[in-house]
């Protein structure tokens, strides 16, 4: 890889819920500008990894983001460092308007002009949200809610976006649209770590992938190799 240290470096990450070990020592790297995907069946530990990275769940091992150790750094500080997490199920604030949803992502910031500029930038990217600015988030359709969730994460000027199953519950057309937007965001310099069950779509836009099995990395490699790997084909791509 490049000489630059990776944007995100995870070494021997372990997450336990009581006596249950959900993640058993995982190491992975995400370099600046990449799209990396984490795949795995339900219960493989994908979401646990993301919630550990963004400071929601305590973990063992080391996580370095942008040169900083993330041990014991609270969730709101991690957002400020430039890592934004689009949670599974989107986490839209249903009773708050789209505008309020976006404003919440700038909670830590005080620069009024910068916030306004970022809002405009994000709304240019998601014109559908502009029409619905004063509408409660809960009244949006599934696809629009996913867009709002991504838009909200972009409001924090994230360098790295963690996406937890952005395709969940969406029709194939919408999935394609969302993935198109994600690629475009990536082209503009945002690094993506993408957790997906939809391996086909994920491997199409990602450069590299990790396949998880019961809390461990089963294998990893470049997307092209993974797509032709018989094990991946059997488990995720329908033979």
């Amino acid at each position: 890889m490049s000489a630059k240290p990776p944007l995100l470096e995870v070494k021997d990450l372990a997450v336990s819920y009581g006596s249950l070990r959900a993640v058993k020592g995982i190491s992975l790297e995400v370099h600046e500008g990449e799209i990396v995907t984490l795949m795995g069946a339900n219960g493989a530990g994908k979401s646990s990894i993301l919630s550990a990275l963004s400071g929601l769940t305590p973990f063992q091992g080391t996580v370095r983001f942008d040169g900083q150790d993330l041990r014991r750094v609270p969730a709101d500080r991690i957002v400020a460092l430039g890592m934004a997490h689009v949670p599974e199920g989107r986490g839209i604030f249903g009773d708050l308007t789209v505008r309020e949803n976006l404003r919440l992502a700038t909670w830590i910031r005080h620069d009024r002009e910068g916030i306004r500029a970022d809002t405009e930038r994000v709304l240019d990217r998601f014109p559908r949200l502009r029409d619905r600015l004063e509408q409660p988030g809960g009244t949006l359709s599934g696809g629009e809610q996913q867009m709002l969730a991504v838009a909200r994460a972009l409001m924090s000027r994230a360098k790295l976006l963690l996406l937890d199953e952005p395709s969940m519950g969406l029709s194939p057309v919408l999935v394609r649209e969302i993935f198109g937007i994600l690629q475009e965001i990536n082209r503009q310099g945002v690094t993506l770590l993408l957790v997906e069950q939809n391996a086909n779509m994920a491997l199409r836009i990602a450069s590299r992938g990790y396949v998880l099995e019961t809390g461990q990395v089963a294998f990893s490699g470049a997307s092209g190799d993974l797509r032709s790997d018989p094990r991946v084909r059997k488990a995720y791509l329908g033979g």
Binding site: S54, A80, L96, E100, R103, A105, A153
Partner: peptide, 24 residues
Amino acid sequence: SKYGRGMAAIREDEVACDLCGVHT
């Protein structure tokens, strides 16, 4: 205020509120 908006966000979804960088 933004604190009020933070309270409403805690009501709606506390985890998402954390992920937005709100000091819950």
